[in-house]
Computed example of a mutant assay.
Amino acid sequence: MPEFTSRRGLLFGAAAVSTGAFLTACTSNEPSDKSEDKPSEAPVADDKPGKQVTIGFAGPQADHGWLNAINDNARSRAKKYSDVTLDITEGSNDAAAQIGQIDSLINKKVDVLVILPADGKAMTQAGLKAMRAGIPVINLDRIFSSPQAYRCWIGGDNYGMGLNAGHYIGEKLKDKKDAKVVELAGLDNLELTQQRTKGFDDALKNYPNIKKVARQAAEFTVESGQAKMAGLLQAQKNFDALWNHDDDQGVGALQAIQQAGRDDFLMVGGAGAASAFEHIEKDDGVLKATVLYPPTMAASAIDLARALGQAKGIGGMAEFEIPSSVTLYSAVVDKTNVAQYKPTGFK
């Protein structure tokens, strides 16, 4: 059987094979051997060298601290395994250019593709093309518009990020009458920004004493964070808490806060930058916590791709296959647990 046919069969025919095997087992009247009654143990990917796997990695341009950490996590994780070869592209924020890079990886016949698309909807066809070529895709973070374009999706929980930020602030202010909060969001044309805001707003519904009095969208950069925060501070002379969606733009926001001489509120950040962890650990300013959107998801994507390439499951689960989706938890990091999370901070 040609390689293309067999690999494509593994991707699209697994359900039919499993169903057939299940029906055979259920309808057979033949007595089974006692040894066959014992449940089979799934082969699990571990640190021991196994089948060689070439993983193609295509992500957007690392023009942001979090995206740079994505690439670093993928590279460092791949180096951990002697049976993994990582073929990583230069990265581009232009969908057409990234599609070309993915085409190149498909033509190289890599075993598995890990793709963090610059635009999930615009690049869905690239994922479909790889899957149809018999190359399974791990879709990282920004999701394709069709589940047929990937074998497994892994990413952060944007709604949960806002939800946890809102609950953290809510618990801190639950006993304060007529508490006021403001929000420094990210790019409003991104769905992830809207999800973070919705989670935050939903959490605040549990605290009738708290009102969100202002919201300003920035652009995930230090410069935009500083400019937009300065505007918020000028417009809002009195508030009790700030939630900032992104720790990179939070660097600028903190500069604006310092320049304004304000220290009369608490601030919660987002993503998990090393600089935010340092402020939280020192506990000498307004930044008291940050809600994670962990770039370690790229390392986990390499683990999933390796397991997929070796036809194995993952540790701690009984299934023979990796799951179809993995949503990471948005943990809140404050001074009580910052030491645990510091090694994951990105610069």
Score class of each variant (00 low, 15 high):
residue 3 E to F: 12
residue 10 L to V: 06
residue 13 G to D: 09
residue 16 A to C: 01
residue 20 G to I: 10
residue 35 S to V: 15
residue 38 K to S: 13
residue 42 A to I: 01
residue 42 A to L: 03
residue 47 D to L: 14
residue 51 K to D: 05
residue 51 K to H: 06
residue 52 Q to S: 13
residue 53 V to H: 02
residue 56 G to K: 02
residue 57 F to M: 11
residue 58 A to P: 02
residue 62 A to Y: 00
residue 62 A to Q: 09
residue 63 D to Y: 09
residue 65 G to A: 07
residue 68 N to C: 06
residue 69 A to W: 03
residue 71 N to K: 11
residue 72 D to I: 11
residue 81 Y to R: 06
residue 92 S to K: 08
residue 93 N to F: 12
residue 100 G to V: 10
residue 101 Q to N: 09
residue 103 D to P: 07
residue 103 D to N: 15
residue 104 S to M: 10
residue 110 V to M: 08
residue 118 A to I: 07
residue 125 Q to M: 07
residue 130 A to S: 04
residue 131 M to Y: 05
residue 142 R to V: 12
residue 142 R to T: 12
residue 145 S to W: 00
residue 146 S to F: 05
residue 146 S to V: 01
residue 148 Q to K: 13
residue 154 I to K: 02
residue 157 D to M: 03
residue 159 Y to T: 07
residue 159 Y to K: 03
residue 165 A to P: 11
residue 167 H to D: 15
residue 171 E to C: 07
residue 179 A to M: 13
residue 183 E to R: 06
residue 186 G to E: 04
residue 186 G to Y: 03
residue 200 F to R: 05
residue 211 K to H: 14
residue 220 F to V: 00
residue 232 L to G: 14
residue 241 A to R: 01
residue 244 N to D: 10
residue 253 A to V: 05
residue 254 L to P: 01
residue 258 Q to F: 00
residue 261 G to L: 11
residue 265 F to S: 01
residue 266 L to Q: 08
residue 284 D to E: 08
residue 290 T to Q: 06
residue 291 V to M: 03
residue 291 V to D: 04
residue 294 P to R: 07
residue 296 T to C: 09
residue 297 M to P: 00
residue 302 I to K: 05
residue 305 A to T: 13
residue 309 G to T: 04
residue 312 K to Y: 08
residue 313 G to F: 13
residue 319 E to V: 02
residue 320 F to T: 15
residue 323 P to Y: 05
residue 325 S to E: 15
residue 327 T to M: 11
residue 333 V to P: 01
residue 335 K to Q: 08
